[in-house]
């Protein structure tokens, strides 16, 4: 049975740590020939230039080749082909498939029917495990550990899949959470239940201000206009949830601010020069983490 990566919950604590360890190794030397002769398909049923380029760069720098499509409009699915058939067809050509799909659960289904490993590059609002692993790698790299950290999650905690996956992944490492969200975008009940059941302490607030002064990680997410019925409420929330450089003055010296990008208004440009801003390095870390993920599903590393 091949090993796909569909959901962050597919990986044990040990597997997460070993991915992060090999990511560190790839960071030292990202250009190798370990995927020489391998073909990796990137099937993007919805566009995501950032994620696709990151995966494709990861493969190409390891000497592998890429086939695929970047938009469903140019693929056979626009002619009504089922996902099952597309996966079977592509698996005749490729050694592994990186897939982004707008429907939730598409990746799990693909992994069940595919003869080759599937890497989920996002299935609707459900899972995006390579994002979660690069978040963990960024936390590990900046804090030196994943254990016993206080993580402040800000913005759209209701629909933000990166937030939900990060909570699940961090649960292995004895974290404390601060959840800061407007009432409309509060963390869903099932994740509060998840924290309680796993003995994870958390607090909730609806204003950003300096509510993160005791945090080690400030994880900002995008507050999307579409999520609000009331546009006046959106305008209010948008401004309250913008991180400005002056707001960081009372924070811990080791604090780093992460953001899955793209950002819109959540972090003002004047934060970029602050050494506590880490979101661009975070994106770069994605390359090494994805090199580790591709290598793992192809069983080139443990």
């Amino acid at each position: 049975m091949h090993k796909s990566l569909v959901s962050i919950t597919d990986y044990s604590k040990q597997e997460i740590l070993s991915i992060l360890e090999s990511a560190r190794d790839f960071e030292v030397n990202p250009n190798r020939k370990t995927l020489d002769g391998k073909v990796i398909a990137t099937l993007f049923f919805e566009p995501s230039t950032r994620t696709r380029l990151s995966f494709e760069t990861a493969v190409v720098r390891l000497g592998g080749s890429i086939i695929g499509f970047s938009d469903a409009a140019t693929s056979s699915s626009s002619k009504g082909e089922t996902l099952n058939d597309t996966i079977h067809m592509v698996s005749c050509y490729a050694d592994a498939i990186v897939m982004r799909h707008p429907l939730e659960g598409a990746a799990r289904y693909a992994a069940e029917v595919s003869p080759v490993p599937i890497i989920n590059a996002g299935d609707g609002a459900n899972q995006h495990p390579s994002q979660t692993l690069l978040d963990l790698y960024s936390i590990l790299k900046t804090q030196g550990t994943l254990e016993n950290l206080t993580i402040c999650l800000v913005g759209d905690l209701k629909y933000g899949r990166t937030v939900h996956s990060l909570i699940q992944a961090m649960s292995h490492f004895n974290p404390s959470f601060k959840f800061i969200a407007p009432d409309e975008l509060r963390l869903p009940d099932e994740y509060r239940v998840f924290c309680r059941r796993n003995g994870i302490p958390f607090t909730e607030a609806s204003e950003l201000n300096d509510n993160f002064n005791d945090a080690d990680i400030l994880y900002m997410t995008r507050v999307q206009k579409e999520r609000f019925l009331d546009q006046i409420e959106y305008e209010r929330v948008k401004n309250v949830y913008t991180l400005g450089n002056d707001m960081l003055s009372g924070s811990k010296p080791n604090l780093k601010s992460l953001h899955p990008l793209p950002r819109v208004n959540e972090i003002s440009m004047d934060v970029d020069k602050n050494e506590k801003a880490y979101y661009f390095q975070q994106a770069q870390n994605g390359l090494y983490v994805r090199q580790a993920i591709v290598s793992k599903v192809l069983e080139l590393i443990d």
Binding site: T82, N84, H101, L103, E104, G105, A106, Y109, D123, A125
Partner: peptide, 14 residues
């Protein structure tokens, strides 16, 4: 049926 309208099972023969 899955009650999530954007679940793959509501769109493909799964």
């Amino acid at each position: 049926y899955c009650a999530n309208p954007v679940c793959i099972t509501n769109h493909q023969p799964v």
